[in-house]
Design a protein around this nucleic acid. Structure first.
Lengths: 114, 114
DNA sequence: TGGCATACCTTTTCGTTCAAGGTATAATCC
DNA sequence: GGATTATACCTTGAACGAAAAGGTATGCCA
């Protein structure tokens, strides 16, 4: 029953992570909560999505990380590199393009007017 | 090099096909052109996407088809069933939800104002 | 008769999301 | 002191589905 390919979600985790981390440094567990809050519960990403995504983004140079001990616990904080900012810009453009195309198609039929 | 997983496209072909066919009956080859036109070139779906999608939608009862001979050539015209209309409604809602979530995240940072 | 547009189709690849499960420490509550 | 919950990290496996590339055949036009 694993809902593996929910509609419209491809690319969304990457875009959201880059966007949130571009505003401030955060750690994985925090991002899980943050995504839910920021999107007004509209979008919720589990740890099984966040962590692999963070690792992939770090691997390709879009993010860098540093470990930080906080109250006996270790957190891995991520921040966006300049490469990541470029990637974010491209992804955001791509998002706007797709959004525009879908929205146009979803508008009322041409023949509906007077 | 096959760009198999472009960002933000998951669910989009299904949504567009249902939407276009809900306005009028069309055939596959026509839909390839229509998607491009309607979206103002923003979205372009190849035959390798359109045909399998149409078949899947017919299989699950969202579309029905009829063959029609036009000038010696045979076309397969598709139209939306009531089941397909329900599916279209759900998908459109889903689209709006995801769009809202992403757009909120993409807005200017809170700290940017005066 | 060669080429192009129409019109249908399948096969294969591949990335990506997601659920589920797994480890370990700190805090809380009884 | 023992159990439970929250924090915090992580991996594995499955399944989906978009895309490219390739394949067939007919009609039209020069």
């Amino acid at each position: 029953m694993a809902q593996t390919n929910p509609p419209f979600m491809s690319g969304v985790p990457e875009l959201l992570l880059l966007r949130l981390l571009d505003q401030r440094e955060m750690y994985g567990y925090e991002l899980v909560r943050s995504v839910r809050e920021v999107t007004g519960e509209a979008i919720s990403l589990g740890e099984g999505v966040i962590y692999p995504a963070l690792h992939a983004l770090e691997r390709n140079g879009s993010l860098k990380s540093r470990r930080k001990a906080v109250g006996g616990r270790t957190r891995v904080y991520y921040s966006v590199t300049s490469r990541g900012q470029a990637r974010l810009g491209k992804l955001a453009d791509e998002w706007r393009r797709v959004r525009a195309g879908v929205d146009v198609a979803l508008e009322e039929p041409v023949g509906a007017g007077a």
